[in-house]
Amino acid sequence: MSGTLGIVHVFPTLMGTYGDGGNVTVLQDRARRRGIEVDAVTVGPDEAIPALGDLYIVGGGEDHGQIAAARRIRAQGSLAQAADAGATVFAVCAGLQVIGVDFEVEGGAIEPGAGIVDLITRRREPRAVGEVLADPMPRLGLPRLSGYENHGGGTRLGPGTEPLARVVAGIGNGSGGERGDGTEGAIAGHILGTYLHGPVLARNPALADLLLSWAIGRELAPLDAPYVAELRAEREAYVASGKLSASAADPR
């Protein structure tokens, strides 16, 4: 990284349905509060993804936005180039599916992904919806992840890809049966994907800091995160209380 941290928000108008833009807000906030200069670029649907960013964010979205985004990312090639060159890539939900090898869309067609990380996604039934708690791989030194998942895809990791975390509550990657295989998310080098919304970096500032440290190439000083401890405790208590299954049609 050269002085300024270049954050590239990839196609949020195509993939940003679930508040995932908040991840970019949190990353910028935590970088700036540490005195790190940030140059954040939002890539519009007809714009080119710059190849020289330090940290790329790909959010979640609906099928038709996801397909459009995958085709653009593949055709442009710059995101894969940046990842090869060591840039940090952070992808959420449909974004995780898009940076993989391929994914199945509604109707059964298989759409090629960007091929940046070795994973594939097939549709799963039932849809995985609800709170998630997951313990990150110990080597990452991260506290428990807290988030909310909402996806109809089951993602299987290839041999070169490590899970981000082990599911404690919820489904996570969700391949291999209704309850999934117990893995959540994916890591390969500085490429990190997760199914968690929340937005995940708002609920897990330590994960935001890990991404920032990868992108700027050094450790970061600790930084407070107002109300996050209370939020995380409240969500843990909610999960512990067993109210996990959301009913589709509560009486009004």
Binding site: Y18, G19, D20, G22, Y148, H197, G198, S247, A249, D250
Partner: peptide
């Protein structure tokens, strides 16, 4: 964030 609200308030960030 009850059923009629949507269970996921991530949208607050939008």
């Amino acid at each position: 964030s009850r059923g009629a609200d949507g269970r996921d308030p991530s949208w607050l960030w939008d």
